[in-house]
Design a protein around this nucleic acid. Structure first.
Length: 110
DNA sequence: CATATGACTGTGG
DNA sequence: ACCACAGCCATAT
């Protein structure tokens, strides 16, 4: 593996998330091969503000579809953005999570 | 080089 | 079903 940066890989996968869809940290980590580093995905998101182009971190939620990242966005900004993209959010949780769930390991599998 | 941290996840009581 | 603890692994200090 050449200049392999974990952060960059995470950013690229997250940027592949289509609008109106969400994914989980574990799914991204698993796709990257580092299944156990689900926390690293979120940690990478912390530095997403340093990435270019920016990363739609608001499309990444936890396994339960809960907007754990909203605390970092500062308010319900995350929920509003998701709603703006067509994702129904209620009680900081994505409705029909299974329906809007976007798994890179499946969507990108070929 | 060693310790601490974290936007997670799974298992057990 | 709910709460608590442990495992995991890359980055930061």
């Amino acid at each position: 593996m050449p200049d392999y940066n974990f952060y960059d890989s995470v950013y690229q996968v997250v940027r592949l998330i289509p609008p109106g869809r969400v994914t989980s940290y574990g799914a991204v980590a698993s796709y990257l091969g580092t299944k156990g580093s689900s926390r690293m995905v979120g940690y990478a998101m912390q530095a997403c503000g340093n990435a270019n182009p920016p990363v739609p971190a608001h499309r990444v939620v936890n396994r339960q579809g809960l907007l754990t990242a909203k605390f970092h966005f500062g308010g319900d900004r995350m929920a509003e953005m998701l709603r703006s993209e067509g994702v129904e959010v209620e009680s900081d949780q994505v409705k029909d999570f299974k329906k809007v769930f976007w798994d890179p390991a499946i969507e990108l599998e070929m």
